[in-house]
Simulated scan of single mutants.
Amino acid sequence: MAINLQQISARLKFYMRIKELDVYQLSVLTQTEPALVGCIVQGEEYSMDDLLALLKQLPDLNSRWVIYGEGNVFKSSEQNQNPEGHLKKDRAAYLAEMQNLLQELDDIEKQRQQQSNLDQLRGRIRELTKHI
């Protein structure tokens, strides 16, 4: 399975929206440098060790979902609630956020496919120009 930094970024942003966290709050919560959290959230280059260390500090977050898109956002439905047992937002708001995330992930996948097509065309052009 290929790991896509943009998809990881989109999933982590979705988690942050649900938990109502900004980059600084997430860095404090995970005891991670804000600059590193910013890199991860923006989908910039970082090591998988850094990502895993951050995810380890978020016990309610399903790391397989963040990295591969497999399973649910949260490890169990109980952990999807605040201490009082109520969701921070209503179900419709969560569904709208999920729809936005799915659209964003779909857009990222389309961009990746377009980039692959561009790379193939560039390679073909290089091959053809060799014969000129």
Rank of each mutant, 00 (worst) to 15 (best):
M1Y: 06
M1P: 07
A2L: 08
L5W: 07
L5S: 03
L5A: 07
Q7S: 10
I8P: 03
S9C: 03
S9E: 04
A10C: 03
L12G: 04
L12C: 02
L12E: 01
K13W: 05
F14L: 10
F14D: 02
F14S: 05
M16E: 00
I18K: 11
E20K: 06
L21H: 01
L21W: 05
D22G: 00
D22C: 00
Q25Y: 03
Q25F: 05
S27F: 01
V28N: 09
T30A: 05
T30V: 02
Q31K: 12
Q31A: 13
T32L: 10
T32W: 00
E33Q: 06
E33F: 01
L36R: 01
L36N: 00
L36H: 00
V37L: 08
G38A: 09
C39Y: 10
C39V: 15
I40W: 01
V41G: 00
V41W: 02
Q42Y: 09
G43I: 04
Y46Q: 05
M48A: 12
M48G: 12
L51R: 01
L51F: 02
L52D: 13
A53D: 10
L55H: 02
K56N: 14
L58S: 04
S63G: 07
R64N: 12
R64D: 13
W65S: 07
V66A: 11
V66L: 05
I67T: 08
Y68R: 12
Y68A: 13
Y68D: 15
E70I: 15
E70G: 14
G71L: 14
G71V: 12
N72D: 09
V73G: 02
V73S: 06
K75G: 06
S76P: 08
S76L: 14
E78G: 13
E78H: 15
Q81H: 15
Q81N: 11
Q81T: 12
P83R: 05
E84N: 14
G85C: 10
H86E: 07
H86L: 13
H86K: 09
L87N: 06
K88I: 12
K88T: 13
K88G: 05
R91P: 09
A92E: 07
A92N: 15
A93C: 08
Y94L: 12
L95M: 07
L95F: 08
A96W: 03
E97I: 03
Q99M: 06
N100V: 02
L101E: 03
L101F: 03
L101V: 06
L101I: 03
L101R: 05
L102M: 04
L102K: 10
Q103T: 07
E104I: 11
L105T: 00
D106C: 08
D107Q: 12
I108E: 00
K110S: 11
K110G: 02
Q111H: 06
Q113V: 15
N117H: 14
L121P: 01
R122C: 13
G123F: 14
G123I: 06
R124A: 02
R124M: 10
E127Y: 13
L128K: 11
L128F: 07
L128N: 06
K130E: 15
H131A: 11
I132V: 15
I132T: 09
